[in-house]
Amino acid sequence: MSSDFYKTSILPFAGIIIKLCRAYTNSQEDFEDYYQEVCLQIWRSKDNFREESQWSTWVYRISLNVCLTLLKKKKNNVQHFVSDSITADETEDNYAFSDESLNLLYDAIRKLSEIDRAIIMLYLEEKSQKEIAEIIGTNPNNIGVRVKRIKMRLKKILDGKIN
């Protein structure tokens, strides 16, 4: 990969990729693998970008689509989509931000379904319902209702944990 391309076209949007990859992984090792894979796929797909959307929206689409369908070998050597909900044994190699509340929020987000994770991440990134619907490829009218449900679920999971 050209380092110029990475510096000029990916790095300015690394925040989006990092936030998303963190939501679909439970360890630093997986996170780094996901981040690298997203960057690789952005580079490979760059010729398909037709400027019908903003570069950041397109980067978000690639990142999300990669995260939704990434295969990785788990310890038992069987291939899985590793974005499955977090389980007790997987929390052992959990990694953390310095902000404890953010860690708790991420843990809660990881307990959601893959699509709900995508929706809440886009919502927290202040994307409009229309933009979220465009990225996911669905009806914008249903996004608002789904966001409300997800927020209620997150509040329930986080209940009493954050002050």
């Binding site: 990475y6 925040g15 936030k19 690298q36 894979e37 960057c39 690789l40």
Partner: peptide
């Protein structure tokens, strides 16, 4: 949470293109 400096540090990527893709 993301205002703190450590939250959005991009991991170092080396020889990315020569790495085997793990995408399905």
């Amino acid at each position: 949470g993301f205002l703190k400096s450590d939250a959005l540090i991009a991991p170092k990527i080396n020889n990315l293109y020569s790495q085997k893709s793990i995408h399905i």
